[in-house]
Design a protein around this nucleic acid. Structure first.
Lengths: 353, 353
DNA sequence: CAATTGCGAGAGAGCGCTCTCGCGGCCGGA
DNA sequence: TCCGGCCGCGAGAGCGCTCTCTCGCAATTG
């Protein structure tokens, strides 16, 4: 670790303190502090003097000192425990971040993104987050029963999840209606006359993966159709996994007439495989994705998809966290956002039978 | 802003202090502190007592307090001032982050990603960074003459840039040999017999954009070929801009026989346009990209590209920053990494003339 | 056996800030 | 003119930690 040398750096070593600003402005430290905390009880005269002095000294309040006394950092962490390649490849995250940023910007709260890449990283991260570096934590893309949210919650850190946690938990979360969305997608396929409908699921250690499979099932059962395990093939939400899963499904069931994919990116992969196999979409096989991400309109044919309000999910997560911070309540809230089926060419009225 | 209520939260309100741990362990605060700072001067007996007490109380050191006295936060910021859609869409960033993380993980330093989305965000960010939230700052994807790095540097914050800054500056940076890489790409095209070589440049407010254009120019001039302004078309490194730029170039010069693209993603866009225009690659037009990202091997035909060691760039940035922190020196270092041309089908020996 | 060394441990001083408390001056009302 | 009230300000305590200084005790040495 770098040592006490740091202290001698111009970095913090020479940076001016409130005391110096106060002296230069000819007021007490308390009054100078009032100026920076936007306290109303300061005369315009004193305020101006302090501001001029601060400008002259290029003063910036020391956050550590402020945090130490207020117990507040004015920043919140967004934790995404995904390999970087996934994090940056998936169109889900930018939209989520946009929603979150929107809300936080208005509150002058800094968003910091944290990307644990290994178990070691995650341990360190737990320390970082419980040590008061952030006022609260947003977390998405949980796999399995990641214990981090619950442990943070127990420690008293405010946590809001995106996507329901695996096990029941006291932590607040925002989720979309994955079951309902998947069900509507499959019901649509059935309504279009499809009968041999497979699914490429998401990771089954994630709520979104499980729930979308559930919705698929519900619709098939209601219609009295077959949706046994041979009709499922898991993917990891990535394009290649979609292509591979599609191939596996075709190997098992060459007569499929539809496939529901738990993400658009996997659906794009599935389309690649179908093209390679000379299957016409939607004539031979109809495809529906999930997310309604930008990729849905750039595939050939364009992709029917279940739209989920990802930006809104981000906004709602941020709102929930800020509300918890404001009220001092610990959570246990859950918000479910509705989804909406968007029908495009990949499941359109194909020239079928 | 959320107010003093926060203080009453279990969050920090009830979290145990070093004092309490020391009392429970039957030692002084100083000795307890020694245990957590891994100081050697503590007996095994005392160490165990403190560790047990800490475990029992679920003690986590308060970082703000520690930072206040050490002047150190053990975390560094990575600033990427790009719209989220770009940040997450570009294969450059995950590779960079991977390289950075690799180095930082070994040093128990936390990486926090900061993504200013607007001028307001950036102002706030400057405050955040100068206020001592991080020990140092890594910054990439600078546009124009972004004043942030210089201002942070002036304030005494250690900054390392990825990619050279627009204007001359005292800030340290790591860059790849963009000029040399571009030159070798174009020299290769010339060696393959191409004579009417256009370029799709990157944003000309970025060092990488300017330098790759420069390399293109150098090679053409050396060979006595035409590379006037009508042969350039700027893009933004994104796929769509590549497609549009290719179209613009073809409109002006239907007889082009090669194009050098300043990024693989733009090259992929260019390939889309060429396909739509029924131009054969490489027979009619040879294409070379830049980055040698994963997309280069998944296009049809596969893409010749200039490989830049992005992970290494991340590692080197992190190393430079840590070295600066360790030594207390402020910077002014520059590291240039070599590039390497990778020839694939898009510029292969086409059936030409 | 006395003198010296060395090592573990405690006391205490801050790091830079916020916030409570109390004081003095100025206002308006009687 | 006098007095209560309010408002702006300063004094001072302390947030939780690290680190220096010092001390006491045991081991080592002449």
């Amino acid at each position: 670790m770098y040592k006490e040398r740091v202290r001698a750096l111009p970095q913090n070593g020479s940076s001016p303190t409130l005391e110096e600003v106060a002296k230069l402005a000819g007021v007490s430290r308390a009054t100078a502090s009032r100026v920076f905390t936007a306290s109303p009880k300061v005369s315009p005269r004193a305020k101006r003097a302090v501001e001029r002095a601060a400008e002259k000294l290029r003063y910036v309040p020391n956050r550590a000192a402020r945090t130490l006394v207020t117990g507040r950092t004015d920043s919140i962490g967004l934790v995404i425990p995904e390999p970087t390649a996934f994090l940056f490849g998936d169109p889900f995250f930018p939209r989520l971040v946009r929603g979150i940023s929107e809300v936080l910007s208005r509150r002058l709260v800094q968003l910091v993104l944290l990307m644990p890449q290994s178990a070691g990283d995650e341990t360190r991260l737990e320390g970082y987050l419980s040590a008061g570096h952030v006022d609260g934590v947003l977390m998405v893309s949980l796999h399995g029963n990641d214990p981090l949210p619950d442990r943070l919650h127990e420690r008293g850190t405010l946590v809001v999840l995106g996507g329901r946690p695996g096990a029941s938990s006291a932590v607040s979360y925002v989720d979309v209606d994955n079951v309902g969305g998947a069900r509507s997608a499959v019901e649509h396929l059935i309504a279009m006359g499809r009968r041999r409908i497979a699914t490429i699921t998401g990771p089954l250690d994630m709520g979104a993966g499980v729930d979308r499979l559930q919705g698929y099932h519900d619709a098939l059962v209601k219609a009295g159709l077959n949706g046994d395990a041979s009709m499922h093939q898991p993917g990891d939400f990535g394009q290649e996994s979609g292509a591979a899963a599609m191939q596996a499904l075709l190997d098992r069931h060459p007569d499929l007439d539809a496939v529901f994919c738990a993400s658009d990116v996997m659906a794009a992969g599935a389309l690649d495989t179908l093209r390679r196999q000379r299957k016409r979409v939607p004539q031979d096989i109809a495809v529906v994705g999930f997310d309604d991400s930008t990729i849905a309109t750039s595939t050939a044919p364009t992709l029917s998809s279940v739209r989920q309000p990802i930006e809104e999910m981000g906004r709602e997560m941020a709102r929930l966290l800020l509300a918890g911070l404001d009220s001092g309540t610990a959570g246990g809230k859950r918000v479910i956002l509705v989804t909406e089926l968007v029908v495009r060419a990949s499941s359109g009225k194909g020239v079928r039978e």
